[in-house]
Amino acid sequence: MNLFRFRLKELREEKNISRNDLAEILGVSTQTIANYENGHREPNFDTLLKIADFFGVTVDYLIGHSDFRTREEEFKGKNFYEKYKLDEVIEVSLDSESKAILGNILVNNVEPLIRNISGILYQHTFGDEKKDFFTLFKKLLDSLNLYFGSLLEYTKKPAYFLALKSDYDPSYALKLLFERYGFNNVVSNYKRNSFMFEKKMDDETITKIISELQETSLFLISLLKPQGEVLTSMRNIEAFYLNNFEENLVRILKLIGAVQGIVDISEISNIKNINKEGDTDGSQDS
């Protein structure tokens, strides 16, 4: 139960309840809860079941035998590998914690996104302008696919690790790069910026490494294009709604004003201007 004390505290804090409140729910003392979280004491099986039921997690998760909180998460997370053929994308074997993190993101973030996209598409299966909307929305999905596909290609490059830390020692970074090209026992002297290799590095390999560094930096810059296409697609969808809504709203208000004599069209606020004034998403034209 090495992880139990950490997971109990994490779950309790997530639920925002005190040790005293949890102790009352479980029928134990506050000091007992403190002992659980400090690692000085472990619960019996009955109490463990109560804790799992209260927080809606499995006993295996509580005691650290699984990184999935529920059986449903575990089932869905593992099935994602087959459903989306992730083995074709993920080239290395993941440990259980990494699989749980990935599985939880897929279940809790990607699946709801797919449902929302499906719902939006269904809402537009009716009406005369459905083809216009479908064209705009498909463009957005194509742009997102292109962006993340490009990003995936970037992460496969040997020099990708340079983007992961802000304080790489240049000598250490080169050592990692050499090792990725098969020079596994590189000994480096950081102060003198010198290296010793188990085998001689040929000119071709050195050229490849330099080329890799240059290509990686240029590749990051190339991501700006698909990023711009995503933003443009989103703005086009937004404009599709705003233009139609504003035009039809004005028509309706004019009709009401003509019938009732109570609406002054000159006082109707321009929806586009209101939207621009209230726009706080921080986006910028690229």
Rank of each mutant, 00 (worst) to 15 (best):
E88W: 01
I221P: 02
E111W: 04
G261L: 03
H65W: 07
L224S: 11
R7P: 13
S66P: 04
L176A: 08
S166I: 10
F245L: 10
L176V: 06
R41M: 13
S217P: 08
K99E: 15
E229C: 00
Q284M: 14
I17W: 01
R115K: 14
F75C: 10
E74R: 00
A34R: 09
R69C: 06
I25W: 03
E14G: 05
K156W: 11
N236E: 13
N243M: 03
I101G: 04
E267V: 06
E267C: 10
V187R: 09
L113C: 05
E129R: 10
I63E: 03
S96W: 06
D128T: 06
Y61T: 05
L8V: 14
V28T: 01
N108D: 14
K130G: 01
L220F: 11
T155K: 07
Q31L: 02
L26K: 02
Y168S: 02
V263E: 05
V107W: 03
H40A: 07
L164M: 11
E42L: 13
L220H: 13
N108Y: 04
L255W: 10
V28I: 15
K15S: 09
L144I: 11
I265V: 15
T70L: 15
E72S: 06
I114S: 05
N243Y: 15
S18G: 04
K208H: 06
F219Q: 00
S188Y: 14
M234W: 10
E72R: 09
L220N: 12
F240W: 11
L11G: 02
R7A: 04
N184D: 08
N38V: 04
K254F: 05
D203A: 05
E215C: 12
V263L: 07
L136T: 01
K138Y: 14
I265F: 00
I90G: 03
R7C: 07
I252D: 06
G182S: 09
D132M: 08
V107A: 02
K15G: 01
T30S: 08
N185E: 15
K272M: 08
G278Q: 07
I90R: 03
Y190L: 13
L49C: 12
I25Y: 11
N236A: 04
E111C: 01
L3C: 04
N16E: 14
E198S: 11
D264K: 14
L242C: 05
V259Y: 13
K15I: 03
I25R: 08
Y154P: 00
K139G: 08
K138G: 09
N109M: 10
K78V: 10
P170H: 09
G127F: 03
D279F: 05
E73Y: 03
F134R: 13
Q260C: 10
E37C: 08
S286I: 07
M1D: 02
E72C: 00
A173P: 12
S266Q: 09
T155V: 13
P158K: 05
I237T: 00
I17K: 04
T125A: 06
I17G: 02
S222Y: 12
A239M: 07
K15V: 11
A23K: 02
V186Y: 01
K76H: 11
E198M: 03
